[in-house]
Nucleic acid binder design. Structure first.
Length: 136
RNA sequence: AGGUAAAUCCGGGUAGUCGCUGCAUGCAAAUGCGGAGGAAAGUCGGGACAGCACAGGGCGCCAUACUUCCUAACGGGAAGGGCUUGAAGCAGAAAUGCAUCAGGUACAGCAAGUGCCACAGAAAACAAACCGCCCUGCCUCAGGGCAGGGUAAGGGUGAAAACGUGAGGUAAGAGCUCACGCCUUGUCCGGGCGACCGGGCAGGUGGGUAAACCUUAUGGGCUGCAAGGCCAAAUAUACCGGCAAUUCGGUUCACCGAUCAAGGGCUGCCCGUCCGGUGCCGGUGGGUAGGCCGCUGGAGGCUGGUAGCAAUGCCAGUCCAAGAUAAAUGACUGCCGGAUCAGAAAAAUGAGCAUCUUCUGAUUGCACAGAAUCCCGCUUACAGGAUUUACAAAGCU
RNA sequence: GGACCCGUAGCAUAAUUGGAUAGUGCAUCUGACUACGGAUCAGAAGGUUAGGGGUUCGAAUCCCUUCGGGUUCA
């Protein structure tokens, strides 16, 4: 546990979803569920040694949040929350041998507290773990 | 002390842990250094830069519009001029003028032409007579009426009524004449680089509107970093080469030649109709996903000197200060600072409250806001703080 | 990031080249009709013409500026 603790809290660019095609594929083929204030879209992929176990896309709508400063802050908070709490998902995916693309779409109307974000991201992660236990 | 307004500047700091991003070093792991703003915003002007177009000229279209200067350029800035609003003052019978202070000003030309000026009003611009005023003629006992003419002083209308005030003049009136004054055209003299100012002479076509068409002057080619350039997977396609297949011809019967879109069958021809026009490999071309360049050292910052009223220029020294791309510059915690609230103490005062200073406690991450090719400006948003200038004046009971 | 367009009652849509009370339909409210409701009839209310400033005697219209919404360009 202690050995793998350190690298798990990083979030390099490879673990962020930024390819236009991959995003299109995620939105057209992915399954979605909703835990306020997140809409979550998930797509299973075949394992590929070039790509990481899970890729994350964080989105905050310009329609919901007008100010660029507020959007940036929300995205940073969500990213921070995911970075801190993502390790169980990766462990499980390694165990079952599948990979995932995930989109976290924020649908609230104002800047949330960091504690709330952490709580909700944990809820999302719990749901993900359940889904993929059942699936296998 | 403090208040209000304007201008300029700042607009949280620090330590730790965990991250993101660029560069450097390193085989790697990693380490070191750098990492949002005054508006990064709006995209309103102007450039740099890039591509396309381009003999030269005219028309058209768009923009700008007091002067001089600054600037790479601008619809920006500085200084100045005119006009205008308000205040109190002086001169004058009044119109109006003078100087002062505080603002505002898209401020070329309606005296080049055209258009428009609703409703009201007689009339909204080569004039014009509704009421009124005056003259003449006729009718009538009279009051008065009718007809012709003169008249823009008065009434009324309107945002605006043919320059204003006073006097003369006249039947009544009128810039009809005169005095003073405003506006304006031409010209001369003086001052100023100039806008313009002061004065003289001769005039007058004397309503507004050009953010109405327009005229004059000046400027402008168009499009924008998603510009533009380079590399380039997969798939499809065009061309070239090879092989195979197809079709046709020749014959020594398994070979040769031709053919890659001609064509072939029903039929000899036309019409009609049917069939066929391929597959694999390699290369080339444009070119998609994706990547790289453009991409940050520049009309650059800071300090000092110097010219100028100033905007700003010049000189010297010194520094290098983000470069992301589904888009980095963050999260958490502690301490300091700030803000708000509560309490206490002290000072000024005759006393209390408010204010201010200090201390204690609580609350609050704490103004507006996030680079996207880069600059200059404008506009808009902004908690709080600092400095300077100007103003009023020592709060309430 | 660049370029461009639009904004009128709750909704939709007019207002000729600036001209006076900003019109119309649906919806809303009140009354009549009806046992009640609908439909119908009569009447009323509802507008900072997106906000602010300017030009003009006069602005929904012209000009500047701010805000909101939308379109488009690889």
């Amino acid at each position: 546990m202690e050995n793998c603790q350190k690298p798990l809290h990083k979030l390099p660019k490879a673990e962020r979803l930024h390819s236009h095609n991959a995003i299109q594929g995620l939105f057209t083929n992915g399954k979605s569920f909703y835990i306020y204030p997140f809409k979550v879209i998930v797509l299973e992929r075949l394992p590929d040694s070039q790509l990481p176990e899970v890729r994350i896309l964080i989105s905050v709508s310009k329609k919901k949040i007008k100010l660029a400063v507020a959007r940036n802050r929300i995205k940073r908070l969500i990213r921070e929350g995911w970075r801190k709490h993502k390790s169980p998902v990766i462990q499980q995916l390694n165990f079952y041998g599948t990979h995932l693309d995930i989109a976290l779409i924020f649908t609230g109307h104002d800047i949330p507290d960091f504690l709330l974000i952490q709580k909700k991201i944990n809820a999302v992660i719990k749901r993900l773990l359940q889904e993929y236990e059942v699936a296998d």
